[in-house]
């Protein structure tokens, strides 16, 4: 990363240079199972072929998350994880790949949008996703992000109307996060048939890459997402479940990420 490169540019470069049919973005919960091991998990993801990392800040009341990520956040908080600890993690990982922080609105607003985003920039974070911030409420955070060169990544859902999609597409920075299902985060069995129409709508609405997430839990689904036109794939609950289950969480998560990365390699003609 060159010092003058903004978060937006660094994310764009990661999408363009992934060498895969879609860029691979693992999600990890900051501080789960603990700070040290989540750093090891993040590094294992990079080693196994992650093009970017999405790093969750644990929040007490995560309304967009299903049981696996909710439980991981609760466990991290019970272990005493603070926001500054997660920013420390972000700083380490951002030396390797672009890091996009996922934080709930109250995490951002508590210190103040400007202060929080300044702290992200200081840590070398490149993007921010706020899952409970529709564009109507996002002006202050968008302005502060723009000033700091941080990409404020919006979400769209299958329920998003065409009118809203245009508004969101115009405001999107870094990439557009396409929620694959009407629901919270969690492993599901949805496939290409449901991905393609939504991805096509998303791509038509915006100039930035579109990444599919929520419910992608197998390499075959990731390949389906790439086939359906996704520029990136986000894997969350499946990896967080592995992070909480295995004795050697980092190597187990790394192994899984490797399988996802392999599924996204270009097909040999």
């Amino acid at each position: 990363m060159t010092p003058t490169q903004s978060g937006i540019e660094r994310i764009a470069a990661a999408f363009a240079g992934s060498g895969k049919r879609a860029a691979l973005m693992p999600y990890l919960m900051g501080g789960f199972p603990d700070i040290e091991r989540s750093l090891a998990i993040g590094e294992a993801c990079v080693q196994a072929g992650a093009d970017m990392l999405e790093l969750g800040v644990p929040f007490s009341d995560p309304l967009a998350d299903g049981p696996v990520i909710h439980a991981a956040a609760t466990s991290a908080l019970a272990g005493g994880v603070r926001v500054e600890d997660v920013l420390g993690l972000a700083a380490s990982l951002a030396r390797r790949v672009p890091v996009i922080v996922m934080a709930y609105a109250n995490t951002v607003l508590r210190p103040g949008a400007e202060q929080f985003i300044e702290a992200l920039a200081q840590a070398g974070v490149n993007g921010l996703i706020v899952p409970d911030l529709p564009f109507e409420e996002g002006e202050e955070i968008a302005r502060a992000s723009e000033l700091a060169g941080i990409a404020l990544v919006p979400l769209i859902a299958p329920t998003t109307t065409e009118e809203r999609l245009q508004e969101i597409g115009r405001r999107a920075r870094g990439f557009m996060y396409v929620v694959s299902v009407t629901g919270t985060t969690g492993e599901r069995s949805a496939g290409a048939g449901t991905f393609a129409p939504l991805l096509a709508r998303a791509k038509a609405s915006t100039a930035v890459p579109v990444a599919l997430g929520f419910g992608i839990s197998t390499p075959a689904q990731a390949a389906d997402a790439a086939d359906a036109g996704a520029d990136g794939v986000i894997i969350g609950s499946r990896l967080v479940r592995a992070a909480g289950g295995a004795n050697d969480a980092a190597s187990e998560v790394g192994r899984l990420v490797g399988e996802f990365a392999a599924a996204l390699l270009p097909r040999v003609a």
Binding site: N106, L133, P134, E136, L155, V179
Partner: peptide, 14 residues
């Protein structure tokens, strides 16, 4: 006040 909810719910609130 306001509407700090996931995008999935916004059309339902409208």
């Amino acid at each position: 006040g306001g509407q700090y909810v996931p995008e999935t719910l916004m059309p339902a609130l409208v």
